[in-house]
Nucleic acid binder design. Structure first.
Ligand SMILES: [Zn+2]
Ligand SMILES: [Zn+2]
Ligand SMILES: [Zn+2]
Ligand SMILES: [Zn+2]
Lengths: 143, 143
DNA sequence: GCTTATATTGAAAATCATTCTCAATTAGGT
DNA sequence: ACCTAATTGAGAATGATTTTCAATATAAGC
C-alpha cells in the first residue's frame, strides 16, 4: 500500500510537470511510515533527526502537495496546528479527541453522515466537506 | 433578554472581583446588538466607528471574558478568525457554512447529537464539547 | 472626599504557525 | 554537457492573537 501511495504521488507530480527530489522522497517516506495525525512541526522534527538539512518551509510545502495529490488530508483539531493524516481513497472518518492526553480516535458513523446530508438538503445547501470532532476525555483519562 | 445577559456578566465580574469599566460596557452593548458570528476584528471595527479610542487588545480580552462569563461562545469556522456568538443557556446548535458567500446557517439535530454520544460511549470517551460544521454552497450560490 | 490597593487600558512588542521572497541549486529534457 | 524551469533553505514577512508595561481608572476603606 505504501507503494501505491508513492505511485499516486509520482503520477500526480509527473502530470503537473513537477520534479522528483531527494527532499520529497524523504518526506514522503517519513510521512508514510508515521502514525496518523502528525502536525507539520512534529513531522519536521522527526525528519530532522534522520536527515539534517531539510528546511521546514520544504516540509510545509510538501505536505500541502501531498494533500493536493490526494494521498493526505489536512485536519485541524483545535490546538492551533495543522495535522496531516493518510488519505485512503473513498474512506472517511471523523475524530474523537482526548483533551487530557491528546489521544485521537477515529470513527465512522454512516447514520450521522446521512443525517448531515439531510440537514444540508433541508437548508438548500450542497455539502462539499464537513468537520465533526468530539472533544472530551478518553477512558484512561476519565477519572 | 439583553438585560439578563448584562446581568449575568455583572454577576460574573462581581464574583471575580473584576471592575466595571466604560470600555466593557460599550463592547457588551455592541456585541449584544450585533448579528451573530462576528469575528473579533469585525466587532472591533464596528466599535471603533462609534467610539474611537478602544484598543483592539481590549476587544480581544473582553470577548474572551464574555465567553468565560457564559454569555458568548467562541467558534472557529475555518477562515482563520475566531468568531463569537451569543450563548443562550441550555441551547446548542451547529453550523452550515457557505464557502462562496460566507453565509452561516444554524441548525440543531437531536438525532445527530444523540448518535455522537453513542459513538463516544462506544469508545469509552466522556464528551465535553463537540464541533460539527457542514461546508458547501447555499441555495443562492449553488449554480 | 481623599487615599490606596488593585484592576484595566492602549500601544507597541512579542508570539506562533504558516507563507513568501529570492538567490543558489538541481532535475530532466535536448 | 547545456538550458530552462522547478526546487530548496534561510530568513523575512504575514496575520491573528497575546503579552508587556507604564499610565489610568475603579472601588474600597477611612
Ligand atoms: Zn464524517
Ligand atoms: Zn483521522
Ligand atoms: Zn451539535
Ligand atoms: Zn451559531
Amino acid at each position: 500500500m505504501n507503494l501505491s501511495k508513492k505511485q499516486i504521488f509520482m503520477n500526480y507530480t509527473a502530470a503537473k510537470g513537477l520534479k522528483s527530489t531527494r527532499q520529497r522522497d524523504i518526506i514522503l517516506d517519513c510521512f508514510l511510515s508515521s502514525e496518523q495525525h502528525l502536525s507539520t512541526e512534529e513531522l519536521y522534527l522527526k525528519i530532522k533527526k534522520q536527515n539534517a538539512g531539510i528546511g521546514f518551509a520544504t516540509v510545509y510545502r510538501t505536505l500541502k502537495l501531498f494533500a493536493e495529490a490526494g494521498i493526505a488530508s489536512e485536519i485541524q483539531l483545535g490546538d492551533g496546528q495543522t495535522r496531516y493524516e493518510h488519505l485512503h481513497a473513498g474512506e472517511h472518518h471523523d475524530h474523537l479527541v482526548c483533551t487530557k492526553c491528546g489521544a485521537i480516535v477515529e470513527f465512522a458513523n454512516e447514520t450521522i453522515e446521512q443525517l448531515q446530508k439531510d440537514v444540508a438538503q433541508q437548508h438548500g445547501f450542497t455539502i462539499v466537506t464537513h468537520k465533526l470532532e468530539l472533544y472530551g476525555t478518553c477512558a484512561a483519562c476519565t477519572g
